[in-house]
């Protein structure tokens, strides 16, 4: 017994001597851990403060024509988001262009991505490179070159030229996004469908398209976002037409109406809302499958028992 106590004492003493060295390291570990949280918090702040300011100032009642200093809380701008002359036309034009260019670019880009990822043909690597060019070229160069092209073939600038320009740069992003999804695709899935009496078109509709759909949707969302806020290229090729970004730029010279913040906030909130719906739907689907399975398992167990 006595020897036993001695031993514990001895180890206790050792621990005592070890303690002072250990304590600071634990302290620093905690600091380091907290520091990570602090950095993460700062990063979020950095990302979110500008958006928060936009939303906050949409409730401002500015003293002058410039919505730059906080004056008074007001919901006037939210009640009449299109009160500023011209803003409604600009928003509608931007939405039209964004929808059309997204649909066309997504269809063309998906088909191109399929061709590029699936088949080897003469000129494939050249096509891959050319697809990449609009992303690598500075927007200002693209915008001005396009303008040069339209002028030299004496094509009137307006809705059509904006649409053409947006489809052009959107296609690149769609191709790149969808191609990434196709590379992760097991070709045997399609062989299996054809083996099960589905012809090429049915196979595409029932197997290929659903499986690359997440990539296609991501590409479409990216294209929409790129189109709706493009300024540089649109500026060159818009002619007399005014999209929402062009409207804000023009307005900023004579005064920024609160409505600009309101519409900006709306776009942001709609995007957040869509994402939330998506997450909720995914969760619901996961749960529904889980319920279906536990039901099936119970049924199987019952069948076994009887």
């Amino acid at each position: 017994m006595a020897a036993g106590t001695e031993v514990t004492q001895a180890t206790g003493a050792q621990q005592d001597t070890a303690q002072p060295r250990k304590a600071p390291s634990r302290f620093w570990a905690r600091v380091r851990y907290q520091l990570l949280n602090v950095f993460a918090g700062l990063a979020f702040l950095y990302l979110l403060v500008p958006i928060a300011v936009v939303i906050l100032f949409s409730f401002n009642d500015p003293p002058g024509r410039f919505n730059f200093t906080w004056h008074k809380f007001s919901t006037a701008a939210w009640q009449h988001p299109f009160a500023t002359p011209g803003i409604q036309d600009a928003v509608v034009l931007s939405l039209k262009i964004a929808f059309l260019s997204t649909i066309i670019a997504t269809i063309l880009g998906t088909l191109m991505a399929l061709a590029l990822a699936r088949y080897s043909f003469r000129g494939r690597s050249v096509t891959n490179f050319v697809i990449f060019l609009p992303m690598a070229t500075p927007e200002i160069v693209m915008g001005s070159s396009l303008l040069t092209l339209f002028i030299s073939i004496s094509f009137n600038r307006g809705f059509t030229t904006i649409l053409i320009a947006h489809i052009m740069f959107n296609i690149s992003y769609v191709v790149v996004t969808v191609k990434a999804r196709i590379y992760g695709f097991d070709r045997r899935m399609e062989e299996a469908a054809m083996d099960l009496y589905a012809n090429e078109f049915t196979t595409f509709r029932k197997i290929t398209l659903p499986l690359i759909m997440p990539g296609v949707l991501a590409a479409a969302m990216l294209a929409f976002a790129l189109s709706i806020d493009d300024f540089v290229i649109t500026q060159f090729n818009a002619g007399p037409d005014i999209t929402f970004p062009l409207f804000i730029y023009g307005a900023a010279r004579t005064g920024v109406p609160v409505q600009v913040n309101v519409i900006g906030s709306m776009i942001f909130l709609i995007a957040i809302g869509l994402m939330a719906v998506n997450i909720l739907y995914q969760n619901y689907r996961g749960k529904r499958d889980a319920i279906a399975i536990s039901g099936a398992v119970r049924k199987a167990q019952l069948a076994e028992a009887t």
Binding site: D186, R188, M189, E191, A192, A193, M194, D195, L196, Y197, A198, N199, E200, I207, P210, L211
Partner: peptide, 20 residues
């Protein structure tokens, strides 16, 4: 003849079940 016109079915390596 394409696979869908043959009275033959296949069990693929790694099964190739349709995940969706």
């Amino acid at each position: 003849l394409p696979p869908y016109k043959r009275e033959v079915n296949t069990v693929f390596q790694n099964y190739a079940l349709f995940p969706h």
